[in-house]
Amino acid sequence: MRPSALRRSGAIACASCTWLNACNGTSSYLDATGASGAHEARLGIWLTVTACIVVALIAIALVAAMMRHRAAIGDRGDEARAAGASMRNEIRGGLRWIYIGLSGTLIVLGLTFAGTMVTFGAVTHPPRSAAVIMDVTGHQWWWEIRYTDVAHPERSFITANEVHLPIGVPVRVMLHSADVIHSFWLPQIAGKTDVIPGQTNEMWVEARVPGTTRGMCAEYCGLEHAVMALVVTAQPRADFDAWMRDRAANASVPVAPVPSQGAVVFAASCGGCHAVEGSRALGRAGPELTHIASRATIGAGALENTPANMRRWIANAPSEKEGVRMPEMHLTGGQLDAVVAYLQQLR
């Protein structure tokens, strides 16, 4: 399989991309946009090509062996003609296949090992000290992400199911689990690392190319393992810094003497599980929603983030995502509208 073919199929997919704005339409890791991902992709392409060549060579050898005595097919009288001594010579001759085959195998394996070690050195070599630290916590079935700007610790904030990466800046990722084992995977940026309760795994990610891709949980973690995605946005450093500042501040909800009906209903009905900074909603069981309106998806990739979808989700999330922990909310139509209107302001 050629990488160009993969890229082409990615491009086709992009055209039909439904819910990720500016998505490049693929999560192919041979089409890498991250630093370690690029090393891994180079190794992967090399391995893929080698694998195809090896399979082709052996297939040719197999067919050649099958063709060699084709004339004899069906000629069962042949056995009588083959003298014992000549058969024993044949077997000795056949051993050459094993010697040659083994030599070839050893060469391929040696090269593979060398390539592996070179790549290994490149991707595990710790980069310069981190400018940004991401603490990622896997939950059944969503991601909580705390960003810390090392130079400006006050700009620490929590978001959910979205990752922004500054281009050319290595980001240190600390992986925690709130419940079961997950695996944090941003296919085009870097390989996956498991998220395991009882230990904090660490990895480095560095985006090289701007754009939006899909990240996901890669270790089966229960009912909604399939719907535990992340939207990954790689952007220039300046844009990223602006995003950090914006996220660290509260959402600019219009100041009113009396909180809107939506804010009141939200705090009462949703605030036990969800938090919106600067409001009375302080829950931590579910995703942080301070800037929910600016996120691309709802429910860790369950739905595109539109007002209509938001309304469906709040009314009855389990009908959209079977295993979700958020229960069916028994709100009136008016309350629903008010909450959706309120959440739409949280940019």
């Binding site: 197999l62 050649a64 062996a65 060699r68 004899a72 001759g93 056949g94 050459r96 085959g101």
Partner: peptide
Amino acid sequence: IATIWNGRP
């Protein structure tokens, strides 16, 4: 493969 090569399959 060598067995097929030698053989009268």
